[in-house]
């Protein structure tokens, strides 16, 4: 206890202290982001394994189909009579092959498209390089995030999009995506069997509002005032960091917005986010 390190905060000037605090905050933010991504990675792996599974399998089938077809085309050179060719054509079940080849390719293409969408969404979602306020489309952010968390949601909840007309707002979209992800994953976890998650967006004057409403088990009134506190979680150890909502709160605050929650145990929870379209002090050029 006595061996206090020489660089204890008390020894530092206020500017240095505040710089350190900021750095710690950034690190906390980053680690929560990594934790969230790690959690998602397992889900995303499953999402990708399905299309990769059948595309890979189809490629193996394609190899057999091609070797059958080559038997036929090679025979064109060597066959003694047309009869031989007909014989081969019949033996490889040419009609079936032709029809199935088209399906096989169409399905495989669909699979690769899906993998592409997932990868693009992951990239869109993280935007690690972006730390500046820019105009961004919140609906696109919501769709991207839905793509990333699809695996968490699809077996539990039906997602209802009640979208209004939204202008682009000045924000750090990767951070807002993270807030949206936290709310969606929480909503999915609150739903015990199956339920509905409604996403509502509205434009009101110089603000926009986003609402995330679930039909889950709700939040105990005693807990409701603490949900934005750091490290507060009701999830079992190892399941939640207790940082998701607290960082969401910080992010919204940084955007000069408000995030509030209302909940009825047994009926569900509603999170409302209000964000200004313009950031105070920002020059709206670009």
């Amino acid at each position: 206890m006595a061996d206090t390190p020489s660089n204890m905060p008390e020894d530092l000037p206020p500017q240095e202290l505040s710089a350190r605090l900021q750095q710690a905050n950034r690190q906390l933010h980053q680690s929560e982001k990594m934790a969230a991504i790690g959690q998602l990675a397992a889900g995303v792996a499953h999402e990708i394994n399905n299309p990769v599974g059948y595309v890979y399998s189809n490629l193996q089938t394609l190899e057999h189909y091609l070797s059958d077809l080559f038997r036929l085309t090679d025979a064109v050179e060597r066959a003694d009579s047309l009869e031989d060719l007909h014989q081969i054509r019949k033996s490889i079940d040419y009609e079936f092959l032709r029809g199935d080849l088209e399906d096989l390719l169409a399905e495989s293409r669909e699979g690769i498209e899906r993998v592409k969408t997932i990868i693009a969404a992951m990239k869109d979602f993280t935007h690690t390089e972006e730390e500046e306020f820019r105009y961004a489309d919140l609906h696109r952010g919501i769709e991207t995030t839905l793509n990333v968390v699809n695996n968490e949601l699809k077996y539990r909840a039906q997602v209802v999009r009640d979208f209004g007309d939204l202008p682009e707002i000045r924000c750090i979209i990767s951070q807002l995506n993270q807030v949206i992800m936290n709310l969606l994953v929480n909503a999915a976890h609150a739903i015990e069997n199956t339920g509905t998650i409604t996403i509502r967006t509205r434009h009101e004057g110089d603000h926009v509002t986003l609402e995330f409403e679930d039909t889950g088990k709700g939040i105990d009134p005693a807990d409701l005032s603490r949900i934005f506190d750091p490290f507060f979680t009701t999830k079992p150890v190892g399941k939640g960091t207790g940082l998701g909502l607290s960082l969401s709160f910080n992010i919204i605050e940084k955007h000069h917005g408000q995030i509030t929650a209302a909940s009825t145990p047994g009926q569900g929870t509603l999170f409302r986010i209000r964000l200004p379209i313009e950031q105070p002090g920002a020059v709206s050029d670009e």
């Binding site: 399905n50 299309p51 059948y54 399998s57 189809n58 193996q60 089938t61 399906d103 096989l104 399905e107």
Partner: peptide, 13 residues
Amino acid sequence: DEANILTALRRLL
């Protein structure tokens, strides 16, 4: 629940 998985398996069998 994925129809494309089923067709891929059917091809193998």
